[in-house]
Amino acid sequence: MRGLLYFIAVVLVIFWALGAFAWHAGNLIYILLVLAIISFLLGVIRRGNV
């Protein structure tokens, strides 16, 4: 499960970066960034409790 969360976080960060530098997608960029940070934090929290 941890690997999946990191994969999702990386994909969301990549999409955020593409949106920020290529398409200027407005608020979607910030939503993707927040989702990536939440996924990363969930992975860190779950790893710490194992």
Rank of each mutant, 00 (worst) to 15 (best):
I38P: 01
W23H: 07
V44I: 14
L12P: 00
V50L: 10
W23V: 15
L35D: 05
M1S: 07
N49L: 11
F7L: 14
I8F: 14
L28R: 04
Y6F: 09
R47A: 14
N27K: 06
F15G: 04
V50R: 13
A36P: 03
I38S: 06
L28I: 08
V50A: 12
A20L: 15
Y6V: 03
G26N: 07
I31Y: 09
R46H: 06
L28M: 10
G43W: 02
A25V: 07
F21G: 12
R46Q: 11
G26F: 01
L35E: 10
A22C: 13
V13Y: 08
A20F: 14
L32R: 11
V44K: 11
F7R: 07
L32N: 05
S39V: 00
G26D: 09
L5F: 08
A20Q: 15
V50I: 11
V34C: 14
G19L: 05
F15I: 05
V13F: 11
Y30H: 15
L32K: 06
Y30N: 14
A17R: 07
V44Y: 05
L4W: 13
F7H: 05
A17M: 13
G48F: 12
F21Y: 11
W16R: 03
G48V: 06
V10G: 12
F40H: 10
F21H: 09
F21L: 09
M1I: 04
A25F: 07
I37N: 01
G26R: 02
F7W: 08
I45F: 11
R46W: 09
L41I: 15
F15L: 15
H24V: 00
I29D: 09
A17Q: 10
V34Q: 09
F40K: 05
L33W: 08
V50G: 10
N49E: 08
W23Q: 11
F21I: 06
S39E: 00
N27Q: 08
L4C: 10
I37C: 03
F21M: 11
S39T: 02
L41T: 13
L4Y: 14
V44S: 04
S39D: 02
V13M: 14
